[in-house]
Design a protein around this nucleic acid. Structure first.
Length: 520
RNA sequence: AGGGGUAUCGCCAAGCGGUAAGGCACGAGACUUUGACUCUCGCAUUCGUAGGUUCGAAUCCUGCUACCCCUGCCA
């Protein structure tokens, strides 16, 4: 049992119902790092028979939009992360305002007329105490009046803020009279111009949890320093609103997921989209949930992967191969096997002149998946990587003089190379390996576009470090029936160990060795 | 520098005073009409480091060291 679970058990032992929340800010699309955070709360919700609200933490109108709300919901639904209610911090603006009034009346919040720079200067530095604002000791009446006028729109943006009166000398910077409310005349995607003051994260988040009777508030490690402020807000607002729970919520923090070379910063992902480096948040090269979906990563693979990374406070950077392992093993179960030749190499079979059709299994792990027909003639394409002039030791595919099994068809022996063509004969000799082929007289040329994830070269994120050469094209051949469905254009993503996933019109996934998955 | 955290195999990660689970990766082999899948075997005398307590320590104590987070009117 990990420390998060211990927190839940503790809450249960106090008689609390387990109520959790997923608190995304709708300022972008979800990426795989978010999936991990969601999966932790979701896993706990399931294991402890609790509830979980999807609450959009939308307190910054400058960055948020309905498009993101909908995108996030779509991704969650696809991942199978279930939630009980859909809520918005913006629905609590009035309640939050009442809480702020409550704090002012208690004398623990004040309106500060200082500029942003002045506040910054007075906050002090790490290890150096801050200085109190000259407005820190205004009377309750004056604060009340000023704050109400802030709401009424009497003051320009940025001219005043509401601050908590805590401790300007606290070693925890978050406790040096943090800003609770700012004036910002930006239209909010849900509340429009109804408000010109907006609550800050710490205030809105903690009280939203409190209002929703959240028992355990699970978040990532960077909020550890915010916990004292979280608790302060909740404690100071006891009794500020009707129906607040007797037992306040408790915050627990765990480390976030990093994947080797993955760009997991929303800011950068947004930049890629805005600058047109990618076609959108769902570009198959993006580490977003929607991008991975288009790349053909099964939802189950993503969820299994993020669950496998554990719940700790350790700094973690998981290798890409770990993700790929789950993608492969899931795809292996469901992908239909079909042939595609990426780098065509012509093979002419000299002792054969018929046209035949063979049945090959669609999925060796699933008999119910059935078979499909693959045609055969004396001219076929094989993949360039399945032949070698100069084979390394233990090479199992085709060589001059070597024998190989064509999947579902005959064994062939390579006699010679004539120009661009390999001349072979059907034989009974023992084959070393099995390769796929496409009938050259009955196939369709396809353009194959491959994608690789948008990766960074080092640990630093800079323009130069981003691998932009992430799309490759080649002209290949596919079984006719597949190509027809694919409109002679296939996209795929390399998942290593011979697996390719193809993605066309968001409908097909394909696998080199060779599988096709439908309906994702 | 002040505060908050974290240190167990290349990477995740169990372990909570009784003598180092598991997965990924990797290596060797078997099987195989996907070099896939499956299977078998191998892979930390040691738990950041130096001491201490104890019959016994990754687990308790002390001192070091390394790394991460915090000085938005972002979340």
């Amino acid at each position: 049992m990990n420390f998060v679970e211990e927190g839940l058990v503790k809450a249960q032992s106090r008689g609390q119902d387990i109520i959790l929340r997923y608190p995304p800010e709708p300022n972008g699309y979800l990426h795989i790092g978010h999936a991990k955070a969601f999966s932790i709360s979701y896993g706990m919700r399931c294991k402890y028979n609790g509830k979980a609200n999807l609450r959009f933490d939308d307190t910054n109108p400058a960055k948020e939009s309905m498009e993101y709300v909908e995108g996030i919901k779509r991704d969650l639904d696809w991942l199978g992360v279930e939630y009980d209610q859909v809520l918005f911090a913006s629905d609590y603006y009035e309640k939050l305002y009442q809480c702020a009034i409550h704090l002012i009346k208690r004398g623990v919040a004040y309106v500060d007329d200082s500029t942003m720079d002045e506040i910054k200067a007075m906050r002090g530095e790490l290890g150096v105490p801050g200085k109190p604002s000259p407005y820190r000791n205004r009377s309750v009446e004056e604060n009340l009046d000023l704050f109400q006028r802030m709401r009424a729109g009497e003051f320009p943006d940025g001219s005043r803020v509401l601050r908590a009166k805590i401790d300007m000398a606290s070693p925890n910077m978050n406790m040096r009279d943090p800003v609770l409310y700012r004036i910002n005349r930006q239209a909010h995607y849900r509340t429009g111009n109804q408000w010109c003051i907006y609550p800050m994260y710490d205030f809105a988040h903690s009280l939203s949890d409190y209002i929703e009777h959240i028992s355990n508030s699970l978040c990532s490690l960077e909020f550890e320093d915010h916990r004292p402020l979280y608790n302060w807000c909740v404690e100071q607002c006891q009794g500020a609103l009707p129906n607040l729970p007797a037992i306040p919520p408790e915050q627990y923090e765990f480390s976030r997921l990093n994947i080797e070379r993955f760009v997991m910063s929303k800011r950068w992902l947004k930049r890629f989209v805005d600058e047109g480096l990618v076609s959108g948040w769902d570009d198959p090269r993006m580490p977003t949930i929607s991008g991975m979906r288009r790349r053909g990563y099964p939802a189950k693979a993503i969820m299994d992967f993020v669950r496998s990374t554990g719940i700790t406070k350790n700094v973690m950077t998981v290798p890409l191969s770990a993700l790929e392992f789950y993608v492969r093993s899931e795809l292996d179960q469901c992908a239909l096997r079909v042939a595609v030749v990426e780098n065509p190499l012509k093979v002419r079979i000299v002792n054969y002149d018929k046209n035949e059709t063979f049945a090959v299994t669609n999925n060796p792990h699933d008999e119910a998946a059935g078979t499909h027909a693959i045609s055969f003639s004396n001219e076929i394409w094989i993949d360039g990587s399945d032949f070698s002039d100069n084979p390394p030791p233990k090479y199992k595919r085709l060589t001059i003089g070597g024998v190989v099994q064509l999947r579902g068809a005959y064994k062939i022996k390579c006699l010679r190379r004539v120009g661009d063509v390999l001349e072979c004969e059907i034989t009974d000799e023992k084959a070393k390996g099995v390769i796929q082929y496409v009938n050259a007289r009955d196939c369709a040329p396809v353009t194959i576009r491959s994608f690789e994830p948008l990766l960074k070269e080092g640990t630093d994120l800079s323009d130069e470090n981003i691998n932009r050469d992430s799309i490759h094209e080649s002209q290949g051949y596919a079984e006719k029936w597949l190509a027809e469905r694919n409109d002679v254009s296939l996209k795929y993503q390399f998942v290593r160990k011979g697996y390719y996933v193809l993605d066309q019109k968001d409908k097909l996934v394909f696998n080199k060795t060779i599988g096709l998955r439908e309906g994702f």
